[in-house]
Design a protein around this nucleic acid. Structure first.
Lengths: 163, 163
DNA sequence: TCTAGAAATGTTACAGCATAACATATGGAG
DNA sequence: CTCCATATGTTATGCTGTAACATTTCTAGA
């Protein structure tokens, strides 16, 4: 049930709740959650994984919501700008934010095996990076942290291939 | 003179030293630093900034060292695999490593103003990310840290535009 | 020395990711 | 009602990256 991790959970419910929260947030902040934008967010939430812009576009096309790349990219841009989704640079892909509202620097744990992605918090500004930046006089405005590795499910599958 | 930072320094010397070190390292480890690979490393060192694969390729072409993308990508791949260069995902670009030999997780400070890039150390495995990964049972194999912001030079230029 | 294999390079062709530029529509403020 | 800002639609193109196969080069072993 933990949306941060690799466990199974009640997916319909988590999608619905996230969408409702996004709607409320847009209402409060006078943001225009148009049909395309809403649908793209829904697709990301349903997919519950990192999706390429062209994956998204395929769905939009099939639903008559837009046939050209810019349509998908603009919607994704809106979602990322307002914290409803993140871009994962390492994958050239996008994923719904698992804890919008809270201001955060996301850190992604990307499984090499099943390509699942978990979102954790990071505070790269503290610790070595912050100190290095301060020493150099560099002002960090935005940071991204992405880790590649093995999720517990894939590690288990590897350890016990005959189970 | 500090190769980690945004300061000016004796560039010819730093290029020559880095190249010599790379040659020695390849010698010791029976790695094949071919002319193309060596030249690509040299280009990265001379450029002293993040360079796209196609920037590199343009130089190689002009020098008759290879005309097609795979030539550049293969050389870059070799350099990255063996720690002589890093890929900066955020920029789809490559940069010479400023402290090869030492085993490290690089963290990049990318200036939005002048696009200079400094390389710092990071240990994302310690701290919040490591704890989150441990909690989830995720095994981190490789991590990437990239920060966007302002280097001291650009901050100064911004603060005193008439100076 | 000859030869088989590994490693590196060369080349074609294409796949995947992203945006510039311009046209059209839609919705609210004055 | 008109103007402006915002959003969408579309064309075209540019940048990033790789699969697949041919050729060359080097080296280890028969």
């Amino acid at each position: 049930m933990d949306p941060l991790g690799f466990e199974h959970h009640d997916h319909r419910r988590c999608v619905a709740a996230a969408l409702a929260a996004a709607e409320a947030h847009c209402e409060r902040h006078r943001l225009n959650l148009t049909p395309v934008r809403r649908r793209v967010l829904e697709l990301l939430l349903e997919g519950h994984r990192a999706m390429g812009a062209y994956d998204i576009l395929d769905h939009l096309r099939a639903e008559g919501l837009g046939a050209q790349p810019p349509v998908a990219y603009r919607a994704l841009d809106f979602l990322v700008r307002h914290g409803f989704a993140h871009k994962i640079e390492r994958l050239n892909a996008f994923i719904a934010c698992t804890h919008p509202e809270t201001d955060h620097t996301p850190a992604f744990l990307i499984c090499r095996g099943c390509h699942a992605v978990a979102e954790a918090h990071a505070e790269p500004t503290r610790g070595m990076l912050g100190r290095a930046a301060a020493d150099l006089g560099f002002e960090i405005e935005e940071a991204m942290v992405e880790a590649l590795g093995r999720c517990p499910n894939c590690r288990e599958a590897e350890a016990a291939p005959c189970a």
